[in-house]
Amino acid sequence: MSSPSLTLPSPATARNRRLLETLGALAIAGTYIYLVLNQPADITGGPGSASALIALSGFLVGAVLLIVGVLPTLPVSTLVLIPVALVLNIVLGQFVGSTLVPFYLDAIGTVLIAVLAGPAAGAATGALSSIVWSFFNPTVLPFAAGAALIGFLAGVAARHGLFRRFYLAPVAGFLAGIIGGVVSAPVAAFVFGGTSGLATGAIVSAFRSMGDTLLAAITKQALISDPMDKAIVFTLVAVLVYALPRRTRLQFPFVRRHRVLAGTAISQPTGESTGKSAGQDA
């Protein structure tokens, strides 16, 4: 073959980062199960810091492991999109968070990446979003694991064609929101002893006035806010993605390979010739 200096060694050696990803997922799942099973009694009684520390460190370590596992495997074209996604998350999240709406809308960028580049990229984007955002708002840091989960679930939904029909996107968002909300509730309960917003706080107060424990009240609030929030986010992302020109959509291998979006059908079953239509426009 030709001089090695100008070309890459044929098929790039895919580094096996699966172990780190699995460890990260296990850390998050393990932390959640521990917190729910042990239902620490000190939540409103004692200093409450042991469970806060466990929630914080378990979820954070999991999120960091996910990032370390996924980030080096992403192609540069996906990597440069992540800051764009984070900017969308932060700008919208900061704006909506300051209004009196019990939603967050801070995952639009994450879900966008997940739909265009897949579950792994989505999970990493979610986790990175919380970590980078904590630079101006440290209170979002503990939610890194929940954000990663939403990114992952959005990617899975996209892979299984839930973005091919417009009406399925909010359904997928609703389901992802239920899971994400349930997982994030212990963080709100143990780390914050409540919620960080006024509107969400009002909902928790309502459940508390009926005598619920703090964790139960926050979980119920999350089950009201999160599914609606994520249904809105998934719908907005579907609107955005379908407004992108075909050529832009098709430049993402994940979209081509799994036929994520309607109207990106490929006549040949093999993945190899998928790019032709895009190339011919140029």
Partner: peptide, 23 residues
């Protein structure tokens, strides 16, 4: 920045636990 982050957080905590604390 501090005001935007902490004001809703502290107010929400005070209202939530100050008014409703079954324990």
């Amino acid at each position: 920045a501090v005001a935007v982050i902490l004001a809703p957080l502290v107010l929400s905590l005070l209202a939530m636990h100050g008014l409703f604390f079954p324990e």
